[in-house]
Amino acid sequence: MNTVTLNVKKVPELFLECENVNTDAFAGKKADQIANLGAFQGKEISTLGDYFSISGDAGETAAETKIIINGDCTKMKYLGAKMTAGEMVVNSACDMYTGSWMKGGKLTINGDVHSFCGLAMAGGEFTINGNAGNYLGAAYRGDWRGMSGGVLRVKGNAGSDVATFMIGGELIVEGDVDIHLGTHMEGGKIILKGNANRRVGGQLVKGEIYVFGTINVMMPGFKPVNTVELDVDGTRATFTEYIGDLGERHPKRKGETVYGKLFLKQ
């Protein structure tokens, strides 16, 4: 695996759209070619070389490429977006769309991320060693196909609208979340280690939500059906199992209605 190191040498004034900072865009390129890739600040088109000092050549493919970014990336959007393979580590807080539409590989952010991160993620491993903003692992506007695969882990807290329209994959928040966790969820698994504000699982169709902490107010469409002891993300605990959202339409499998499930630690 070849490593490309990017050190921020200029912090953008407004913001910077870094859709070319990912293993796929770098694959097969030498450091000077990488420096010539486009970076965008509104209608101003510049190059990655204007903002980063770049050392190391990329591997032939994304899978053979590792990217390390140091310096202040708080105004940089789309870092690691759409990556399909390889590895990327950002030692900074990042702006919007970090790791969004990610299909594979490993992305680690050593800092906080803003909204729309891991949007419609389809595969890979995305770890945020900090807090996340709103719409983490959610769907793009209007799409009914949100996060569909991979593992997204946040060590800190996350904002509102986490995992909206989720259809697959696994999303773990080790801290707390704000309102609307797993709204319109139709598949996949959410594990919340901390507390949730209100409206967990609103309009939940299918899928599983595990909550270790508390839920501020339960949605009226959830009904307790069982007490179960489970191993969840390496921790064994006793949960109350709810089905819901009973206000929502649910599919039928072999004559039986399939409900979404919410497990709340007792």
Binding site: M219, P220, G221, K223, G247
Partner: peptide
Amino acid sequence: DYELLDALRTAARGEALPDTV
């Protein structure tokens, strides 16, 4: 509002509700 609308949907399907929403 969200909870009450969810309750109305739940009631329209004839499912159980908490005492007040």
